[in-house]
């Protein structure tokens, strides 16, 4: 057995070379512009100078070893981290020219513009119909025609309509795990958000359900801007246009997915994508 090449270990506080950029542009400009974003949980800094530019209508993957801050970065985009006590940030996250951390920003309105899908399917203990219409109902929409229309559109977009149309008023908890996750995606896009954030959406699913979700992401590409955190490098390679490789809270390399996986510009990215560490 050949000895594994030694990989330089690094500490959080170590200085790391600046991010290398080589992204593919989508032509519609950027949906999210993250600039010099730092984040602390109490005394611990979790993100260091993250600067990335998420292209509108494209799929952006965040990869990196466990604890590198991918999920933290993703959850910063719709301010889900606000729930954590002692959170501090610096830098900016620009959406349509305004900073989502700026003064007077309506967090609830912001979250309505960003659908989110979580690691484990988390449908509410309601009917399928009520699950999909939840974002609209909390917004005060009660008109049945609008709700009906939304359910059909969202479920069709989430490739769930054929399976669910005859049981819309049965419990969402009676569905399989893959169906539940697609329902969560349908819920995420029900209020027609601009960005869809996905936090390891396939990690709790079997390969067939994973394939369906990946196909769905491919279908949704162009319609929505998608940011996906994934542990599976092959998944990132399959579904994304651009990939950001993160390590110890820093973005090491951010660029065109093909290049990141076949010909990375930074040696550490190469080590990670070839499986030498992580």
């Amino acid at each position: 057995m050949a000895t594994a090449p030694t990989v330089a270990t690094a500490q959080r506080s170590d200085r790391i070379d600046p991010t290398v950029y080589h992204i593919k542009k989508g032509g519609q400009g950027s949906a999210l512009d993250i600039r010099d974003f730092n984040l602390w949980y109490g005394e611990n800094q979790a993100l260091y100078d993250n600067t990335i530019d998420v292209q509108k209508g494209m799929v952006t993957a965040l990869i990196g070893p466990s604890g590198c801050g991918k999920s933290t970065l993703l959850r910063s985009l719709n301010r889900m981290n606000d729930l954590v006590d002692g959170l501090r940030i610096s830098g900016q996250v620009m959406v349509d020219g305004f900073d989502i951390y700026g003064p007077g920003v309506d967090v609830i309105a912001l979250r309505k513009r960003m659908g989110m899908v979580f690691q484990k399917p988390n449908p509410f203990a309601m009917s399928i119909y009520d699950n999909v219409t939840y974002p609209l109902r909390v917004d005060g929409v009660t008109k049945k025609s609008i709700l009906d229309e939304t359910v059909e559109r969202a479920l069709r977009s989430a490739a769930l309509w054929d399976e669910a149309k005859d049981r819309l008023h049965t419990s969402a908890l009676g569905m399989s795990g893959g169906q539940q996750q697609r329902l969560c995606i349908a819920r995420g896009i029900a209020s027609d958000p601009e960005v869809l954030l996905m936090d390891e959406p396939c990690s709790a699913l079997d390969p067939i359900a994973t394939a369906k979700i990946e196909n769905l992401i491919a279908d949704l590409r162009g319609q929505y801007t998608i940011v996906i955190v994934t542990h599976s490098m092959s998944q990132a390679a399959r579904v994304s246009d651009n990939t950001a490789f993160m390590y110890l809270g820093r973005i090491v390399e951010y660029g065109d997915t093909g290049t990141v996986f076949t010909n990375p510009k930074v040696p550490r990215t190469n080590d990670y994508v070839t499986g030498r560490f992580g």
Binding site: N78, M80, L83, I108, A109, R111, K112, M114, G115, M116, F118, K120, N122, P123, F124, A125, Y134, P135, V138, D139, C184, R187, G188, S191
Partner: peptide, 27 residues
């Protein structure tokens, strides 16, 4: 009540009270 339920509701743009009212209390 699992955290994922609350987060799911908040991510849908529900306020804290709506989350408690529609998700947390029934559960």
């Amino acid at each position: 009540v699992p955290r994922s339920m609350r987060e799911g509701s908040l991510a849908c743009g529900a306020s804290k009270w709506q989350t408690i009212r529609y998700i947390v209390l029934p559960k």
